[in-house]
Design a binder for these strands. Structure first.
Length: 929
RNA sequence: GCCGGGGUGGCGGAACUGGCAGACGCAGCGGACUUAAAAUCCGCCGGAGUAAUCCUUGUGGGUUCGAGUCCCACCCCCGGCACCA
């Protein structure tokens, strides 16, 4: 009887031995090809939970596999150690963020060591240590030097609970990503990185293998729109600016502009506002500033705004239109000003209706439909009959009015004639939709007035009011028409179509409208084609203590002056006070704030904000290459050796934050001549998340499950395998430990299979060949699955292989030597997944240390090839029989065998064979009638 | 609303380019061993039916000799974006 498998004993033993012998130490002088396998480093929140392990264990398996395949593998680990949690803990518990963080690291490192990964701990990187953040600051200076960092006053996202600003990416549904508090706006001087400079390049993914999903998310985030910038003429007393530019993706609708809307924070607003509107405008600005992001962005919220009293002129048609302000216009997108075309934009339409602004249609409908309402008592008898004769559809209202729907120009023209004949003097009728006109009748005859401009709107409205007291309260024609439910679906549309009511451009077909208008505007000097992005520059200032101080100095004489490189790092003072005041605790620290100007040596003040922690994680993968290098952020030779990352794994929640920032960062370094690659990582893979109680695990939700007890109970090898076996790695899922015992049982069976004595009893050449085939098929399957990160099926294949070997052993059907060989292969295939048990078994079966330095088994395609296959016999597509045939069988032979198959015979007899389909190695389908 | 991803036994999941649906494991059931239990091992395990056989991959259609896989419509779940002019 072999000794029992007691995981904890052998796991401890081997982890110690690996550490002693430096088995996983990595150097750059290896003759092997390099492979950089990177896993996102954890944030130092305290405990690692099984979610972390779910990310780390399988990536270690892949890295170990690459190592056995003959690569020099760098698979490092470190800690993302700056950030708000530490500071909040400091405020709550009175413990210094440094102490809190280092204690957490201590614990996390212990947990990480127990995972049995190949991390080379000599390369550990901790972002909150001065030896690291010195270089974070250095990168800031480089970005500043290359005009990629700038300071600007802007309305920024402010989290009242975290007491700091947030990057755009950190605002989720108008709330703080970290604490869910509603975000408000503040005007602050902040530091930004010019990520928008790389907007276009960030949408390109040439030469890299990234998940389609992430690429789509990033492209949407960058949000490139092609459009036109159009200049509207401004002539306002006391204002120097002679134009206001707007960005639009619909220049084809410019003839339909009936007002303009500026963002409330737009710098022109105070200058343009006329004295009598001043109070109202200021109140509105104040209100929108106080609103939270959710309130302001709520799509349910009714659009509101205020008139400034000023006007611009639409150069295309000379129309003078009012300037409004409204908070649905964002200062940070486009030019912060929009031309409003209520006829073809839903928001503008709602706004126009609310404030009685005119609506003029300038794009034709594509369906050719128009509507008209013949009110009871406005028509001579006989209209109904005429409509019927002309095949025009209508419905009659209870009071005898008619709702008429016209399809196509012929019906519309026909109908106009009918109205001219039937309309009673002193009445009017209108046609809306595919045609816009009003027909007025008087004793002298009928007049057809097209509704095609703001002037027409005025005169039509005046005429209607004169004729009909009921409409006298209406401010616009559109408001009048909106009153009739029947018309509503005609009153606005966003389709592309032929231009109408557009002066010289009327008639331009929809598919050319945008390019024609843009060209024409360019010729006239009214505007030009341009591109706008949803992406904003990356706001990196944080009003908190626990981050890398921004290395900048403000001097009264010299202005903004960067800290000299030789003065780095700008150290965090240890004795700051942690009170959430809305300003960085550093601002209250006299010793920190007061300094001298590096240029003129006069007294100066330090920048007291610290950097967003995403800045720290934007370059940690470079630091791993030479973690203790003191002359620079990294040793260029070593970075040249390791970069770019070959496989980067981590959660998809970083799609538009970390994963966008690192790409920006690397591109910026490349343009500075510091990097010679375009992308940080060649292949990206996002594993899913382990959730508990339907939610992501987090300390604050109190649903954290740690791996420690499972490790103590089952051994880490079991835990590693169980994570892989749960399901597809990219899928994640609800944590359920009910299956873990199955894995434990399996490893136990492996243990006994390898250690309990093998006795050949009934050696059999056929079985020997079959064993070899199965072995090579398993090597092929396992290799392919790890390569594609399909760990769940890899484990299933190994379990199957084990079950198969157990049967062989039971029967004793191969020689001692054959058995030994196949057991070795089993152990090698298992080694990346279960490094401890395989190391132990490797030793116990008489091999030299270490199994992890062995070569990955190779398969031989010829040996893996099946000699026989099972052919499925179908009759009319239904399974009737299975027959085992040699792989070399010909089509005719196969069909013959199928026809003779006893099980399918009854289904064929008495019927006529129409067709026989043969799929080699798969099936024969007999089609009978 | 828009853009992704996904609905397969009691459960997690498998199924390569359209070709045996349910691999592997959990749970369950039956058996062996045991005084007993645990552990271990063996067998069964989608549903209906004595059986032949039929039904079954969210729903409804379609293409095909053949559909979990392809096409159309719809329902549900998850993720992202959401006044971006």
């Amino acid at each position: 009887m072999a000794a029992k498998y007691i995981p904890n004993e052998i796991e401890k033993k081997w982890q110690e031995k690996w550490a002693e012998t430096g088995l996983y130490r990595v150097t750059e002088d290896s003759p092997k090809p390099k492979y950089y396998a990177l896993t996102m480093f954890p944030y130092t929140s305290g405990d690692l939970h099984i979610g972390h392990w779910y990310a780390m264990a399988p990536s270690d398996v892949q890295a170990r596999f690459k190592r056995m395949q003959g690569y020099n593998v760098l698979h490092p680990m470190g800690f993302d150690a700056f950030g708000l949690n530490a500071e909040n803990a400091a405020i709550r518990q009175g413990i210094h963020p440094y102490t809190w963080t280092m204690q957490n690291i201590e614990n996390m490192r212990r947990q990480l060591k127990s995972i049995g990964a190949i991390y080379d701990w000599d390369r550990e990187v901790i972002t909150c240590l001065p030896e690291y953040y010195k270089w974070t600051q250095w990168f800031f200076l480089k970005l500043y030097e290359h005009d990629l960092a700038y300071r600007q006053k802007a309305p920024v996202n402010w989290c009242p609970s975290c007491q700091t600003v947030l990057a755009n990416e950190q605002v989720v549904d108008g709330c703080c990503e970290r604490c869910d508090t509603a975000v408000i706006h503040r005007d602050l001087e902040q530091w930004f990185f010019r990520i928008t400079k790389y907007a276009d390049e960030l949408m390109q993914y040439e030469g890299i293998d990234w998940p389609e999903r992430i690429k789509i998310m990033q492209r949407n985030w960058v949000g490139r729109s092609t459009g036109t910038e159009i200049s509207f003429a401004l002539d306002h007393p006391g204002v120097d600016e002679k134009e206001i530019r707007v960005f639009t993706t619909r220049p084809d609708t410019t003839f339909g502009v009936t007002f303009m809307v500026l963002a409330p924070e737009h710098p022109l607003v105070p200058k343009l506002t006329v004295p009598e509107k001043k109070a109202e405008v200021e109140a509105y600005i104040e209100r929108s500033r106080r609103q939270t992001e959710i309130e302001r962005l709520s799509t349910e919220k009714e659009k509101d705004g205020v008139f400034t009293g000023a006007y611009v002129t639409n150069r295309l048609n000379g129309e003078k239109v009012p300037i409004w302000i409204a908070d649905y216009v964002l200062l940070s997108y486009g030019t912060g000003a929009v031309m409003a075309v209520p006829a073809h934009d839903e928001r503008d339409f709602a706004f126009a209706l609310k404030y009685g602004l005119p609506v003029i249609h300038v794009i034709d409908r594509t369906d050719g439909i128009a509507k008209s309402y013949a009110m009871a008592g406005t028509m001579r008898p006989g209209l109904k009959q005429s409509l019927e004769d002309a095949n025009i559809s209508f419905t009659e209202t209870s009071d005898g009015g008619l709702y008429i729907t016209l399809r196509g120009d012929d019906q519309i023209d026909n109908y106009i004639e009918m109205v001219r004949v039937h309309l009673l003097p002193g009445c009017w009728s209108e046609i809306v939709g595919s045609r816009w006109l009003f027909i007025f009748a008087s004793e002298e005859g009928t007049t057809v007035v097209p509704f095609d401009s703001i002037e027409a709107e005025r005169s039509i409205l005046a005429k209607c009011k004169e004729l009909e007291p009921n409409v006298r309260s209406r401010r616009t024609v559109m408001e009048m028409l909106w009153g009739l439910e029947f018309y509503r679906d005609m009153l606005f549309h966003t389709e592309y179509g032929t231009m109408i009511h557009s002066g010289p451009l009327t008639g331009t077909p929809g598919d050319q409208a945008i390019s024609t208008v843009t060209k024409w505007m360019e010729q006239q000097g009214f505007g030009h084609a341009t591109v706008s992005y949803r992406l904003r520059d990356w706001l990196i200032s944080r009003q908190r203590y626990w981050g890398a101080p921004i290395p900048m100095i403000y001097c009264d004489k010299c202005g903004i002056v960067p800290v000299l490189e030789e003065d780095l790092p700008v150290l965090l003072p240890e004795d700051a006070e942690f009170k959430p005041t809305g300003e960085s605790p550093l601002a209250y620290h006299e010793g920190f704030v007061n300094t001298t100007c590096p240029k003129c040596s006069s007294p100066a003040r330090r920048e007291t904000d610290t950097m967003d922690t995403f800045m720290c994680s934007s370059w940690y993968f470079l630091r791993y290459c030479s973690p203790h290098y003191s002359q620079a952020a990294f040793d260029p030779e070593k970075v040249k050796y390791w970069m770019p990352v070959d496989l980067y794994t981590g959660g998809a929640e970083h799609a538009v934050m970390h994963l966008l920032y690192v790409r920006f960062f690397v591109k910026a370094l490349r343009d500075m001549g510091i990097a010679d690659y375009n992308e940080p990582c060649v292949r990206l893979y996002n594993q899913g998340h382990i959730i508990a109680e339907q939610r992501k695990m987090s300390k604050s939700r109190g649903n954290v499950i740690t791996p420690d007890e499972y490790v103590a109970d089952m051994g880490v090898d079991t835990v590693r395998v169980y994570f892989m076996f749960l399901g597809p790695w990219e899928q994640g899922g609800e944590w359920d430990d009910s299956g873990i015992s199955g894995v434990r049982r399996w490893l136990n069976r492996v243990w006994n299979l390898v250690l309990e004595e093998y006795t050949p009893r009934a050696e059999n050449d056929g079985v020997r060949t079959e064993l070899r085939r199965t072995t090579h098929q398993t090597i092929r399957k396992v290799t392919g699955d790890i390569e594609r990160l399909r760990f769940n099926t890899m484990i299933a294949a190994l379990m199957e292989f084990t079950n198969y070997l157990a049967r062989i052993k039971e029967a004793g059907s191969v020689s001692q030597a054959d058995w030994k060989e196949v057991v070795d292969i089993l152990l090698l295939l298992l080694a990346p997944s279960t490094p401890h048990i395989t190391e132990e078994l490797w030793e116990q079966t008489g091999h030299n240390y270490s199994i992890h330095s062995q070569d990955w088994p190779q398969w031989d395609e010829a040996l893996a090839k099946d000699e026989e296959v099972t052919l499925v016999v179908q009759v009319n597509g239904r399974l009737r029989d299975r027959i085992t045939v040699p792989i070399s069988i010909t089509e005719d032979e196969a069909k013959q065998l199928a026809l003779e198959s006893p099980k399918s015979k009854p289904h064929i007899e008495g019927k006529q064979l129409v067709r026989a389909i043969y799929v080699p190695h798969k099936l024969v389908n007999l089609v009978v009638k």
